[in-house]
């Protein structure tokens, strides 16, 4: 990648991003803009996948909300993402946990946490 591209991206990258591992449960606090007002909204879910590099890195979070699976893609370096915390370490043996989508009930968001 061109040095210049990196220079431009550097201005927009966050200095500190917590170490994210696939299968972790992550809480992302996102600034929501509704008309004039701004408020914070938390989205806590299992990290299904990480995609992209540099400024384009996004994470795919999945949670079960009132019995319905909800997924959200969030750019890791987005200025709207005000806080990012790993709440639970998970253990996954693959890079994309799309198989969790076909799971139902208690197992739905389970990633092995025994080592």
């Amino acid at each position: 990648m061109s040095v210049l591209i990196k220079k431009v991206e550097a201005a927009y990258l966050k200095n500190e991003v917590p170490e994210l591992a696939i299968g972790d449960t992550v809480r992302a606090t996102i600034k929501v803009i509704e008309g004039e007002k701004e408020r914070l909204q938390a989205f806590e879910g299992v990290l299904l996948a990480l995609q992209g590099t540099g400024i384009n890195r996004t994470m795919k979070l999945r949670k079960i909300s009132f019995g319905i699976g909800v997924e959200r893609n969030i750019p890791v370096h987005s200025p709207r993402l005000t806080e990012l915390v790993v709440t639970k370490k998970g253990r996954a043996r693959r890079a994309k946990l799309y198989y969790l989508r076909s799971r139902v009930g208690k197992e739905a968001l389970k990633t092995k946490n025994k080592i």
Binding site: M1, S2, L4, I5, V8, E9, Y12, K31, I33, G54, I55, N56, P75, H77, S78, P79, R80
Partner: peptide, 21 residues
């Protein structure tokens, strides 16, 4: 033309950009 990347706007939107020197 240097290449493409994305940047965030003040509103926090990610927009695709082309860098021109």
């Amino acid at each position: 033309k240097i290449g493409m990347t994305s940047v965030f706007t003040e509103k926090g939107l990610r927009v695709p950009v082309t860098l021109l020197q």
